[in-house]
Amino acid sequence: MNAIDPTKESFKTLKNIKILYFARLRETLGLDQENIILPENVTDTRQLQKYLSNKGDVWENEFSQKKAVRIAVNQEVVMATQILQDGDEVAFFPPVTGG
């Protein structure tokens, strides 16, 4: 963190988010969670999906709308596209099958 000068304008726009993957996604992506700094052009959940899809291979397969993926932001499912804030916890998962 020392490398970043907090007085610079760019620092203020950096958004750190935590991403969680569950069930089929966790297995196919081989990852259960990660912390990322959002690229400047990724400001909402739809763009985040596109960004993840662009990672190719299994990522493209899971995030290019071919498969049903649900999104929760801060533990609440979001239906429409939602703007992402610094510190958000975003979760991706298949339709639920409990009960």
Binding site: A23, V96, T97, G98, G99
Partner: peptide
């Protein structure tokens, strides 16, 4: 409660 639990609560069965 069961209908909503089955379609909303974040559980997955393998």
């Amino acid at each position: 409660l069961m209908d909503y639990l089955k379609t909303q609560a974040p559980f997955w069965k393998k």
